[in-house]
């Protein structure tokens, strides 16, 4: 089917993605060296950009703190006797997952080139991410194990099997929401579940769709937030209500962001009658909350 005119369009994206694109196109040539050598590097992703974005859009009413996912991850890594090098956004750039999936290959290549150079300079052996999308991008699209010999881990894999102990302040029923990048694409279903099992006092239930059949949060590359994707998210939240949970845990800041946004929107429009009486949290935040009793 030949079209008469070439079809091209502008991609809808939130503001912070535009800033990431701007950031990607600024070339930084000067070299950088960490103060001391580290084995582990921790990549927080663009959580801070998300924080500023949600402040503008009034959607999260100040209670969605994405940066706390990064802070929680660092705290948990320290708790597990790992001293990670923080690969923060002042030195690194966004991993480029969203740009890749939106089809902006130029931007992705620029981001990839920058990050690969910085990773080479950092001298780390293992990179761990709290974001499932960054994890997939580093492991598959950057192919870090093949090119730089850096092992890529999701933070749940790093924390798994280190003899950590957690205790929930009170009894709680939790469910784990599989991010599609971590689950279906990278095949990691067990590490987060193992971590939840470690929490004393938390009962884990499975949602109706779990593991490879898990429902997506709806906006995996920040493309559109439309009625269809909202319906996907609502269906997922409804499954949480059906399972009778107190807490839904995600493994990706994007899942956290979109679910929080949905929960807030429901509460802003109480007439529509959609109501979910539980919290959405990132797994890292939950584990940190359960650290308290142990200390």
């Amino acid at each position: 089917m030949n079209r008469t005119k070439p079809y091209s369009r502008t991609i809808p994206h939130p503001l912070f993605e535009r800033l990431i694109v701007e950031d990607a196109m600024n070339e930084e040539k000067e070299s950088w060296k960490p103060e001391r050598p580290h084995e582990y590097g921790y990549f927080p992703g663009c959580v801070d950009f998300m924080d500023v974005e949600v402040k503008f859009t009034h959607l999260n009413k100040g209670d969605a703190d994405h940066a706390s996912i990064a802070a929680a991850s660092i705290k948990l890594l320290n708790y597990a006797d790992i001293d990670p090098l923080i690969l923060d956004m002042n030195i690194f750039k966004c991993s480029g997952h969203d740009q890749l999936w939106q089809g902006q290959l130029e931007v992705f290549d620029a981001l990839k080139e920058h990050n690969m150079r910085r990773l080479k300079e950092s001298g780390i052996k293992i990179i761990t991410c709290s974001c499932a999308e960054c994890y997939r991008t580093f492991a598959v699209d950057y192919d870090l194990p093949g090119t730089l010999g850096i092992k890529v881990e999701h933070i749940t894999q790093t924390l798994q099997g280190r003899g950590l102990k957690f205790k929930a302040p009170e009894g709680v029923t939790v469910a784990y929401h599989d991010p599609c990048r971590l689950g279906r694409m990278m095949g990691e279903y067990e590490a987060p579940r193992d971590l939840i099992q470690l929490v004393d006092g938390a009962t884990m239930v499975e949602l109706e769709n779990n593991k490879e059949r898990a429902l997506c949060c709806g906006v995996s590359s920040m493309m559109y937030c439309n009625d269809a994707t909202k319906a996907v998210r609502r269906k997922r939240l409804d499954q949480g209500t059906d399972a009778g949970i107190d807490l839904m845990l995600g493994g990706c800041p994007k899942c956290y962001m979109h679910m929080q946004c949905m929960l807030n929107e429901e509460r802003m429009n109480p007439d529509e009658g959609h109501h979910h009486d539980y919290e959405m949290m990132d797994l890292m935040q939950f584990l940190v909350a359960c650290l308290e009793e142990e200390n």
Binding site: D48, D63, D65, M281, V288
Partner: peptide, 18 residues
């Protein structure tokens, strides 16, 4: 739960990430 997590995190000064 979110408040609990934030309280725990507030006890210690953790590095910012940008």
């Amino acid at each position: 739960w979110l408040t609990t997590a934030k309280n725990v995190l507030a006890k210690e000064e953790l590095p910012t990430t940008g």
